[in-house]
Write a protein that binds this DNA or RNA. Structure first.
Lengths: 209, 209
DNA sequence: GCGCTTCCATACACTCGTGTAGGTAAATTG
DNA sequence: CAATTTACCTACACGAGTGTATGGAAGCGC
């Protein structure tokens, strides 16, 4: 009943977000009440309403702990030589993305966003998914265009088609894995698919590598 | 206020399902009340509760109007010569599937199932999506295995990988298109991707057509 | 060390949706 | 054509969840 110190308050805020993650994932966003979230964190709704405006506000706060735009993944690698090997850049970006997604928090939040929440209040998860898809497609388009210019792409496949194939494949992979991550390991099996697809798209190596 | 004839009653049942489709798609399943559905169909909740047990029952009735297992798509073609050209069988099955999905009712219901409903009551849309994915993957596995035996598959790609690539790509394509179907035409753009991917997976044609 | 603010608990009013019970008039059955 | 059943509508009780108002104790600034 006593007031907490500042760090304790910050801790309860995080605890509330953690609880929200867990219950949203388990029961879906629409069916979980703020009461359930508070209870799971050992608090009452009073704590929730003090830290957040309402459920939508809490939801957005939860999202902001895991932002992950595609572009950053490549930039984080920071290898300048990748400019000359765009296909390898894509491969490494995928690998980084997979590793990131396998972190429990990232996995949970993305699973919630894609599979366990409908539109509500001012939250539109489909619009967010569109943004993510467009972001990825745009990046892939550039890399494949670059690959085409460098003669590293099969000539009977346009960069546009290559990008869309890759984006669709990655999207499908994400959806499948986020639906039930126990079925396969994203890093191993996912990378096998990515590498296979990139090999298919690469110009039939006359002397590559 | 008067009692309707049997055919009229059946018509109102369909009207209720149509209304459910429309509002589920627009506002999401969780946020739509039976009152809203009834009103949209020009009825009251009394009609809903007479025709259906509750929201879950109505939802399942809505689903049963659009069952579409992957296998049926191939069988419907009924071309026996396809046994010798498994890749072509896949192509035609995709085409059939796309055409089916472009029918407004099929598109709406699948969009609801995938993007506009969370788990509720005894309804588990993720389990249904798993079934559909497994069904498609199983069928693709068989066709690609057959293609491998007939020497129509690239030798550096295993049938398993080919099937998973294809399934992931198709899944991603569905998700993207169902999210907002105005962005591209599934039949044209989708078939372009399918044909491109099949060309990539096919054995580098020594003399195929 | 005093007051002010913070961080949360408790209590209340209110809305919204559900499920069901009862009414009713016409269709259907015999 | 009478009796029954059908196909709804209306009305009510109920619970669940939300938002807010109030209170209180302890941390923090000075």
């Amino acid at each position: 009943m006593a007031r907490r110190t500042k760090t304790e308050a910050a801790a309860t805020r995080e605890a509330l977000l953690d609880a929200a993650e867990a219950i949203f994932l388990e029961r879906g966003v629409a069916r979980t009440s703020l009461e359930q979230i508070a209870r799971h964190a050992g608090m009452t709704r009073g704590a929730v309403y003090w830290h957040f405006k309402n459920k939508a506000d809490l939801f957005q706060a939860m999202l902001q702990r895991v932002r992950m735009p595609f572009q950053e993944l490549v930039e984080e690698i920071g290898d300048p030589s990748l400019a000359e090997r765009p296909l390898e850049a894509i491969r490494q970006a995928c690998q980084r993305g997979f590793e990131r997604l396998e972190l429990p928090r990232y996995r949970r939040v993305h699973a919630i966003l894609i599979h366990h929440c409908e539109t509500f209040a001012e939250i539109d998860p489909l619009a967010m998914q569109n943004e993510m898809a467009d972001d990825a497609l745009g990046a892939l388009r550039e890399y494949f265009a670059c690959a085409a210019r460098l003669g590293q792409l099969r000539e009977d496949i346009s960069p546009e088609i290559a990008a869309r194939l890759m984006q669709a494949m990655l999207g499908g992979l994400f959806h499948d894995w986020l639906r039930n991550h126990e079925r396969f390991a994203l890093r191993e099996d996912g990378m096998a698919l990515v590498e296979a697809q990139l090999r298919l798209l690469a110009r039939s190596s006359p002397s590559s590598r």
